[in-house]
Design a binder for these strands. Structure first.
Length: 197
DNA sequence: CCCTGATTCGC
DNA sequence: GCGAATCAGG
């Protein structure tokens, strides 16, 4: 495969959108992410700015924020616009939505066997715990059979009841759990030491 | 282990 | 110009 004009076009577009080199490579096909990165450099748009020209050495402030949406597809209508703040609580006093699942986390753990890591008296960062609780709401709640090498295997609930499922979110690479659950699963472990090759 | 981009250097 | 190998970091 060679860098035809339109392929370079796709490259530029995607790179501009903040797509990763590997994603671009996948999209294009026939090239590796290395090829993409190499090309990106040769095109001189290594710095996710490219547009405009004015290649500035960039400010020393290397502050990369999580990419801005940047969807200049449609020109934003400007001028006289009234920002109307919709007061969420008008006359429509709809009953409080209760997607609340009969979860209810008891203090006592029924199981008698190798229940999962389940945080005990351990001191886990409140941040991590907060995150987990949040994750449990958005969890995919998959079943045992649906577990794969890439799904969080963090169990929720009591296996003896119907309210039992596995998190199922994307794992945190290598780990058996998603990011949040890895957090409470094993915080310890000495920090990774310098990995020399 | 997975992934990112950056660089190098033989082709 | 190209991109695999390698580097450096998350």
């Amino acid at each position: 495969m060679s860098w035809t004009d339109d392929r370079v076009d796709v490259l530029k577009k995607m790179w501009g959108e903040g797509q990763s080199a590997s994603q671009i490579a996948k999209e294009l096909g026939g090239v590796t992410r290395n090829a993409v990165i190499g090309k990106v450099h040769r095109l001189g748009l290594s710095n996710r700015a490219g547009s405009g020209g004015a290649s500035k050495p960039a400010a020393p402030k290397a502050d990369a924020k999580p990419k801005a949406p940047a969807k200049p597809k449609a020109a934003p209508p400007k001028a006289n616009e009234l920002v109307e703040i919709q007061e969420p609580r008008t006359e429509s006093a709809s009953p409080p939505p209760q997607p609340k699942v009969p979860h209810a986390r008891r203090q006592i753990i029924p199981a008698g066997q190798p229940l999962p890591p389940q945080p005990s008296a351990n001191e886990i960062s409140p941040e991590a715990l907060r995150k987990v609780n949040e994750v449990e709401k958005t969890a995919k709640k998959i079943s045992l059979m649906e577990l794969t090498e890439k799904t969080c295997k963090w169990p929720v609930g009591d296996p003896a009841t119907e309210q039992f499922w596995f998190c199922g979110l994307d794992v945190k690479q290598g780990k058996p759990y998603c990011e949040a659950h890895v957090g409470v699963a094993f915080q310890p472990m000495s920090s990774r030491r310098d990995r020399r090759r």
